[in-house]
């Protein structure tokens, strides 16, 4: 059998709706037998954060960043109509009605479909995110990891 096509998505954004789009495309591509990688960088890293409160050793700035950023996919804000936190509640209600999969479920589905979830280590350092704060069984890398996958990717997206 010929080698699988590749889909690579860079998730830069830290909003629930944008991350949802990224993960829906990723899961769809996996169903097309693509080898799929999602590169999480900057605010997109928050999709990989665990929702429990962890206290790894951090500098003052890192602590502040940690407090101000959403802890995990389910706590991410919307890119539009945030309404001081009411927006995400409303959209989750609508999604339930329409049987759309919530973001945490899409992430589980992605793991089940062997999608590679990769965290950018340089931006982890900038934002002060530690490995123990991120989901288990993800991979770590930098720009070279993306280029290696992206140079022969059938689909390359930046979200």
């Amino acid at each position: 059998m010929a080698e699988n096509k590749k889909t690579n998505i860079i998730l830069f954004s830290g909003e629930y709706d944008k991350a949802m789009a990224a993960y829906i495309i990723a899961n769809g591509a996996a169903a097309y037998d693509h080898d799929v990688t999602i590169f999480h960088t900057f605010w997109g890293l928050n999709a990989l954060r665990k929702d429990e409160k962890l206290q790894p050793k951090k500098s003052f700035m890192e602590k502040m960043f940690g407090k101000m950023m959403p802890r995990g996919a389910d706590n991410m804000p919307l890119s539009k109509m945030q309404f001081l936190g009411m927006g995400p509640k409303m959209i989750k209600g609508v999604m339930k009605k329409h049987n759309a999969m919530p973001l945490p479920d899409l992430i589980d589905m992605a793991k089940e479909q062997d999608i590679t979830l990769l965290a950018c280590t340089m931006t982890m350092d900038l934002l002060g995110l530690k490995k123990e704060e991120l989901l288990d069984d993800i991979e770590y890398g930098g720009v070279a990891a993306y280029i290696a996958e992206g140079e022969d990717g059938a689909i390359n997206l930046f979200i």
Partner: peptide
């Protein structure tokens, strides 16, 4: 009752 992308994922 399933929404995108589930029909395709389940079909696969």
């Amino acid at each position: 009752g399933l929404a995108c992308p589930m029909p395709i994922v389940k079909t696969k």
